[in-house]
Amino acid sequence: MKLLGEGFYWTDLATGDRFRTFGRTITETDIVNFVSAMGMLESLFLDAEFRAAHSAIPGRPAPAALALGLAEGMVLNATGQGTGLAFLHMEMNVVAPVLQGDTIHVEIEVTEIRPAKKAGRGLVRTRNDIVNQRGETVITYTPLRLMAGRHAAEAAQ
């Protein structure tokens, strides 16, 4: 029986492959829950009066870590279910703020693929652009992931 939602195997990807996720709107609840759970209780995120008087960012900003976490959820649900083995490294650049009410999606480009030391596994690096509803890239990050290979998965069945 075919398993629905299974991610890509590293052996099925090619450098230059491009993908786009569905979108996700950032809500006030997302921001409040995230900053509360993380202990990021700074005035910029929780005090509307402080924000109105002192913020350099108009609107209610979301922490970049929240946008990254939501982006990773969108990416992994679409590309790594059952095939992603480890998140190894990344570089991240915040280009613009993500605000309450913004709808973000992720545009993914495979930039590097190589076999891992252990047979049947591979290393895949992508360039992931988090893009808002206006088509503006707000965050770029470059995860390196350890991924299963199709032949290794088939042999294990």
Rank of each mutant, 00 (worst) to 15 (best):
A116P: 06
A65D: 15
A62I: 13
V106C: 15
M90L: 04
G84P: 02
M90H: 01
V106A: 14
A119W: 00
A62M: 11
K118H: 10
H105C: 15
V75R: 09
K117H: 00
L66Q: 10
A86S: 02
L76P: 02
V110R: 13
A64N: 13
E72W: 08
M92K: 02
A65G: 14
A116D: 04
Q81R: 09
A86I: 11
E112I: 03
L85H: 07
L66C: 09
E112F: 12
T103Y: 05
I104S: 02
G82T: 01
K117Y: 01
T83S: 12
P63L: 10
A62P: 09
I113Q: 07
T83M: 02
L68S: 03
E109H: 12
V95A: 08
K117A: 02
V75N: 05
L66P: 10
Q81G: 03
A64H: 15
A71K: 08
P63T: 07
P63I: 08
V94R: 08
E91A: 04
G82E: 05
K118G: 00
G69T: 11
M92Q: 14
L99G: 04
E91I: 00
M92G: 05
T111K: 10
K118W: 02
A65L: 15
M90P: 00
G84F: 12
L85S: 13
P115W: 08
A67Q: 06
I108M: 05
N77M: 14
L85R: 06
G69I: 03
V75G: 00
A116M: 08
A119L: 00
A65M: 15
A62E: 12
K117T: 01
Q100H: 14
G101T: 04
E109I: 13
D102G: 07
L76S: 11
T79W: 10
G84Q: 14
T103V: 13
P97R: 01
E72Q: 08
M74G: 02
E109T: 15
L70E: 13
F87N: 09
L99Y: 03
I113T: 15
A67M: 14
G101L: 09
G80W: 03
I113Y: 11
E109D: 14
T111E: 09
E107R: 06
M90N: 00
Q100S: 15
P97F: 04
K117C: 00
G82V: 07
E91Q: 02
D102P: 07
V110L: 12
F87K: 03
K118Y: 04
